[in-house]
């Protein structure tokens, strides 16, 4: 069993320094890795990123993150990424990373993701340049996720996890106003997950949503936004059957 700890939307700033550290220091007893599902800061400044970095620095488990929309607000995502990486955090955008847990190769593919809506109720690349750019941004990030998951399969990972900030499914948005679903996620992310295959998809972003969901291809989805899980992090146990997951076996 691979034990995956995950949390998103911690929104740390200087006044919340040290808030999560006591809980994170228990991670070695209950998890093999920690996933951070974006919105780690409030405004996406390097100063706020330093608070996040201090919170996770030196933990005895690998820490893997994606950025969220808040982490882009100050338009310094590269600086935020650099600060997190300097503390040993693996920050993903359209790429994957492999962690060895008791000889098992565990792959995590990550992207921030973006909005656009869900099948039958989604935006299209049509009309004004702004609208086309909106949908193309999501499509590009979803393609990056697909490529990263494919790469992890080729790399022999027995367990693969998709880590995003925006949601791949509407299931985990239940509780949010329906009107804002298109700003909370996109089916393009789920399509990438289902086509490449994964054992689990983890996201944040929807504070008023629901923890549990599933893609139409059968991949379990968990919304780990901290207001949803109501803990410092959630832990999911993933079974290992020894064979790399494929789109068919994941479903």
């Amino acid at each position: 069993m691979i034990r995956v700890a995950a949390v998103g939307d911690i929104h740390l700033g200087p006044d919340s320094r040290g808030l999560l550290r006591p809980a994170f220091e228990t991670l070695h007893r209950q998890a093999d890795l920690l996933l951070l599902a974006g919105d780690l800061t409030r405004h996406g400044t390097p100063e706020e990123a330093r608070v996040v970095a201090d919170e996770v620095a030196g933990l005895p488990v690998p820490v893997i993150a994606v950025l969220g929309n808040h982490d882009h607000h100050a338009e310094q995502p590269d600086d935020v990424t650099d600060v997190l990486r300097s503390a040993g955090v693996t920050v993903l955008e359209g790429e994957g990373t492999v962690v060895e847990v008791d000889g098992v190769r565990v792959g995590v593919a990550g992207t921030k993701g973006f909005g656009g809506g869900f099948a039958g109720r989604s935006g299209s690349e049509f009309g004004e340049p702004e609208m086309k750019a909106f949908v193309r941004h999501t499509r590009g990030l979803a393609d990056g996720l697909r490529g990263a998951l494919d790469g992890l399969a080729a790399d022999g990972c027995a367990v693969r996890i998709a880590l995003t900030h925006f949601s791949p499914v509407p299931d985990t948005l239940v509780g949010e106003p329906l009107e804002i679903y298109p700003f909370l996620g996109s089916y393009l992310l789920a399509e990438a997950v289902d086509e490449s295959g994964a054992d689990l998809a983890v996201h944040g972003h929807a504070h008023l949503g629901t923890e549990h969901g599933i893609t139409s291809g059968g991949v379990r989805v968990r919304n780990v936004a901290q207001p949803v899980i109501r803990r410092a992090f959630a832990v999911y146990g993933l079974p290992v059957d020894g064979s790399p997951t494929t789109a068919a076996s994941a479903a």
């Binding site: 069993m1 034990r3 808030l19 999560l20 006591p22 809980a23 228990t26 991670l27 209950q30 054992d199 689990l200 379990r220 901290q226 207001p227 899980i229 109501r230 803990r231 410092a232 992090f233 959630a234 832990v235 999911y236 146990g237 993933l238 079974p239």
Partner: peptide, 16 residues
């Protein structure tokens, strides 16, 4: 308006 709970979880969810 609830306050975020920053305590560690007391059990995992096993996805078997």
């Amino acid at each position: 308006i609830a306050l975020a709970d920053v305590t560690a979880p007391d059990h995992p969810e096993d996805l078997s």
